[in-house]
Structures are given as C-alpha cells and as structure tokens.
Design a protein around this nucleic acid. Sequence first.
DNA 1: AGCCTTTCCCTTTTT
DNA 2: GGGAAAGGCT
Length: 809
Amino acid sequence: MFYIRPMTQDLFTVDAEGARAPEQNSRLAPAYMQGLNPPQREAVETLEGPVLVLAGAGTGKTRALTTRIAHLLMTGTAHPQEVLAVTFTNKAAGEMRERVEALIGQPTTGWWLGTFHSLAARILRIHASALGADSFNQNFTILDDDDQLRLLKTLLIDNNLDPKAHSPRAVSNAISRWKDRGWVPEKVPLDDIPSGLCDGQLGRIYDAYQSRLLELNACDFGDLLLHNLTIFRINSAILETYQHRFRFILVDEYQDTNVAQYLWLRLLAAKYQNIACVGDDDQSIYGWRGAEVGNILRFETDYESAKTIRLEQNYRSTGNILAAASALIANNSERLGKTLFTDDAPGSTLHVRGLPDGNEEARFITDEVESLHRQGRNYRDFAILVRSSSMMRAIEERMIDVGLPYKVFGGPRFYERKEIRDAIAYLRLIRQPDDDLAFERIINVPKRGIGQTTVAKVLGFARMSRISAMRAIDVMIDTDELPAAARKKLVAFQQMIGQWRELMNTMPHTELAAQVLEDSGYRDMWRNEKTPDARGRLENLDELVGSMGNFENLAGFLEHISLVLDTNAASGGDELSLMTLHAAKGMEFPVVFLPGWEDGAFPNMRAMTESGDKGLEEERRLAYVGITRARQELYILYVGSRFLHGQWNYSRPSRFVEELPEDLLDIDDISGASMFAGSLSAEGRSGGLGSLYGVGASGARDIGALPPLEWADKRQFRGQDSPGMNRLKTNLDTVKRGNPPIIDGTFDPVGFASRDASHGFVSGQRVFHRKFGYGIISAVEGEKLVIGFDAAGEKRVIASFVVDAAEAS
DNA sequence: AGCCTTTCCCTTTTT
DNA sequence: GGGAAAGGCT
C-alpha cells in the first residue's frame, strides 16, 4: 500500500500530562472564537457539508477560514491529516499556516496546506508512475517559463516553423491557457491560435511538446494539475484514497480558481462534500489565467446541500476608503452585488495627487513616507502597489537613494538571475539526468570546448530518437557520428555529472552544491571575469548554497525553487512593501500608495484591446483590490508624463480616478496632464483608449497608428488536425452542448509517443550516410550500425542517420 | 572559436 | 531600457 496514514502529528498528544482528548480541546473553543460576528461564526461552526462564504474585501474571510480549521481540529471533528487547505499564492499559504499555528499553538509541518500547485505536485510525486508514461517518474522536473520557451522554440524549428514568425511566447500562452481551462476550452480555443499558425500546426507543436516533456521526465505548471486529473480518472483507487483522506477541504480565494483547479477540487470533494470555499467575485483578477468567476455561481448547483454565508461587514478600512471602493466597483455590470458596511469612522479623505513625471511621483512617495514615519508610523505600515512590475524600478531607485528599507515582492527574482539558474541547472541535471533544459544551459558553461555544433547534433539526435541528451550521448560516444575530440569531452562531462550523482547519496546537499560549483569551474569562471557585477554573482552563489541549508535534501530544495519563487518572503524586518496589485491580494496595510493611475497603463491598454469590456471590468476589480488593501490612508497617484521603454509618454489620469466620488477626495494636480488632455481631446480621446502611447515627445506614435494586433487573422487555414487539436474540439463540442466542463470518459489522457526504435536495416544492405557516403552494413547492434563505407572505411553510426542507398538522391 | 558591437524586438498581471 | 541574436573582427 503506497499510502500509510501518518499518525505522527502530535496535535492531540502534546500535553505534558499525556494525551489530550479532543473533548478537552473543545473547551478552548470560546477563546479562538472570540470576536467573530454571527455570520463568521456560522462559517466556522458549520463543520460539515458544503459551505460557500461570499465575502467582501476586509470582512475577515481568511480569518473565518483559519478559525474553521482550528475549530475542526479542536472539536476533534478532523484529524490534521484529513484537512486539505488550498490557497492561490505562496504568501497566502504562509499566512494561513501562521494563523492556524497561532490559533492551535502547534506547528503545522507536513499538513496538506498550501497552494494548488504545491499540493498537486506533492500528490504527483507520489503517483507519477501511475500516469503510464515510460520515463515519467517521481523525480520529474517542473519546468519554468524560460525552459518552456526554449523547448518550444526548438520544437518549432524541428517542425520547420520559424520562431520569429510564430513566436514561442504566443504558442506558450495558448498552451498554458488550454491547460488552465483543463483542456476544456470554453471561451478562447479555436480563436486563440497565435500569429498565423494554422490549427493543425499548433496541434502538432502541442503534441510534440507534450510528449517531449514526458521523455524528459518533466512537466510544466499546468501539467501538475492536469496530470493529477488524469491519474484520478484512469485510476479510481488512487482517487478514492484521496477522497477518503481529505474529508475536509477548505479553499481560499475561490473566485480565482481556473477550470483545472475547479475539477481537481470537485473530484476530491465528491465523496464527503465537506468543502468550504471563500471568495469574492469583485476581487476576481485572474481571468487572464483562466479563472472562472462562474465557479462561485456554480457552487450551489454542484453541491445540493450547499449553505451560502455572506460576510458584509468590513473591519479593515475607514468609511471613506470603503465608500470610494464601493462607488468604483459599482461601475461593473457583471457582479453578484454585495453591500459592504463598516462601523468605522469616515477617516481621512483619499489623497489624489497628479505629478509631473515618474521621478516626482517616486519622490512624493518617499517624502510622504518619511514624514509619516516621523509621526510614528513604522515602515512596515506602508505598501506601494503598482500595476506592472516595470513601474517598480523608478520607485526602487528612489528608495535606495534616500535609504528607505523596502522589500520587493514579485519583482526581478533571486532565482531568475543567470548565475543562480546555472547553478541550479547543475543540480537539476545531477538529480535528473534527463533534464535537457538544464543540460543545454550548462553543457558549455563554463567553456569546456563543447561548441554549438556538437550540442546541436546531440540535442537533434536526442529529439529524433525521443530520448534525453544524456542518453543520446551514451549512444553517440560509441559511434563515429561525432569527431573523436568532441566525444572525449562529452564523456568527460558525463563522468563529471556521474561522479556528483554518486556523491548525492552520501554527501549533504549543501556540501555537494559547493563542491559542484568549485569542481565544475563555474566559480572560477566568475572569478576570472572582470565585469563589475562578477563579485555580486559570486556572493549570490554563496547565498544560494547557504539557503539550501534550510531544506532537508536536494529534492526538497529543487521543489521549493520551482514552486516558490520567492526568497525573501520570511524577512520580518521593518520595511515597506513594494509589489504588484496582483501580488497584494489578500493583504492589508495601514497606508497604501497606488502610483501609475494613468489611462493606458491602468486600466492597461492591452487588457482592454484584448478583452474589451471584460478586460476593463477586470482592471476595475484590480483597482478595487488596490483601494481595499488600505486601512487608514490611501494615496492615488498619476503623472503627466512617464519614461517608459526608452521613450517619454504623455498621459492623462485613469478613468478610474473620475469614477471616485469627488467628495471623498482631496485632489492636488500639478501633473500638467489636463493641458495634454485638452489638446488630446480631438484625436486621443476620440480613440476611446488612453493616450499613454498617444503622443510621443518625438511625435512618434499616434493612437490610430498602433500596429495591428498580432492575434488577428486566425482561422483561414484548414490544416490536418492532430490528436491534440481533435481533443480540443471534442471538448469544445461537449461544452457547447450545454454540459458543464466536467472531465468525462471522452477526454483522453495525455497522449504518449510510442518509442518504436525498430529501423528495419539489415546486414548486407547498401545505405547512404550524409557524412561518410555509401557503404554496406556489416553488423546491426540495436540502433547502431557497423558499416563498411566505400570511401571512409568501417564506421559505427546511428541508424537514424542513414537511409537506404536507393532512397538517397 | 571567441569576443565585441550592432541591431532588433518586446514591453501586464503569476503558479 | 534591456535582453537576445546576428554580424563582424581578431
């Protein structure tokens, strides 16, 4: 039996006097329940059955959820290992963990409490082999964005498609979107074919990508959930195990679940239906990631005995802030509608400031922070929330200048630095030699004389024979396909990795990492580099090795970096927070700055051109999220001109500013934007979109002259359909017939490429080889052939490099 | 092969 | 502005 129910959790047995019975714990209930209002209490105390908590911003929904977990445990209704608590982001998961620990006074290590992706990865690690793919096993690598793009690019080239004409990025987006929708493309699918690829081509790329991932023992983010679904569907025993195990399921931010996540939850909750979801349709900001607000609406039909509880009393923000947020969101047409109220005083007005440019905006923020800090605020009381991370730089630079302590969430990340990624690639390859993306990254870094040509040959052969590069080397070093010098170097590389691989089992992982970086010459490479940032890179490597100490083993560390791309989450110093609006979901701060409220930037022009009114409404919800993060003071900022992408752009205030009730605001506009707005009214405004790109300083671009959308021109092709595309269409039909997007038997599990190695060559056959010319096969050893060539003499070559002499032109 | 310079392209949000 | 790729030079 693969699953042994761990009974090591000591929640009920920590008492010094011996085992503490659940009944005794229940007497503690009043303490942690104190201060809850009646609906919150109801949400906590409805221990069994499906519960949907529709809760507005700042109504204490996460508190209700965590208290519910505590209550489940304290009343003895649930054992810790029977609880599955799911959040969207790592930060939310960490926060939930903290709160639960505070409530029950116990560590929650090992509990099933985390993000969708981390929990799905955990299950997939246990059951990877149940997927049925030859090479896919528990050591699988989780690919990130960059790996995915590089892989797609090579696959495009293999399929004779030009990566310039058919951007790997667009293909990647399309694939991710399908996956987010659980392969049930309700809205986008057939129109969502990027840049002139006909659907047959895209389907082929998709299939090639998917089977390549399995050959490399790798999966992408979307696969984590999808493979779970596949396993659950083809192996009901596994599904039942988990249905039985997770008797209590809790979900935060339910409005942001996509179809794949929805299906995953539904399958798991099917048996006991003890599922409690908390969400707010007004805070749905992940539509672009496939989030379905409809999942909230569907809850009551999915679970017949569902109980819906509304939390409408806001405990977070002042009256003015709440009123402004409510007025803004009232402009959205698609909403369930909630009326939030607060008993708090109105508080300050909202501070709206128009400033000349981005530097002045940054200066205003730091000045204001310092002045409030002098009045007794801590730095950690402040948050600066931006629409896009590119807006962070100016603010960051300013804060460095004046020496304010700050922390960036979701900006350029530690793990995305080149040296860190290289170091991790070494470790990935040592742990999982089939990881070609890691291989490609470090095969010649530092330089070891294995050039582009050699690497291209190895990788090309690997893809052709549907094996990984390291395995391809095994084959190729026995043959004459590569020059002797190259073979020698490849062998040396392989042996180097092999030695470390052996050390992996005996040596602590931090020591191994240090040794790998030293022995590989990677550290020396940076030591010898004279650029100013080389020293910093070496320090980063030290930091990486140091941070590995926080993990039990190499596997745990690698899992962490692929799922939790956030190093400084745990620093609790007195620092102000700088992050995107998306990253701020679920958080609150006494003082919030919202810079960059300019039309075109926010609401973001792309969001609107791509998704029209729906896009605008999502942007408005984002604004709503931003405003409702603030407890006491709120600053909304816009500038008259901003330096973006190497060019000055003139702008006018966001339409969202106009949607705020004027009597709640104190406005001070020195942006000069109104002047431009006036001059723009003829052309810019009539365009209906913002003027962010309207008039460049150099008179560069005009709204009407924007480049045509790349996504136009989609379906004039009728290429032959691939299995992947057929699958899509089948599912599309299912949905069109009015069926809910459920997994059913009609929908195939991931398709696998069969590994048919038989080539059909026989001894005595006359063949042609591109490099060695014509010859006669003297022996066949699996896929290797020994051939006596007319000109080159006897050589060992690989069957796939050879064609029958008659077929050679 | 390797190194330096130029050119081109992108540029929302994230697990 | 910034990164990747292509081109050009040693």
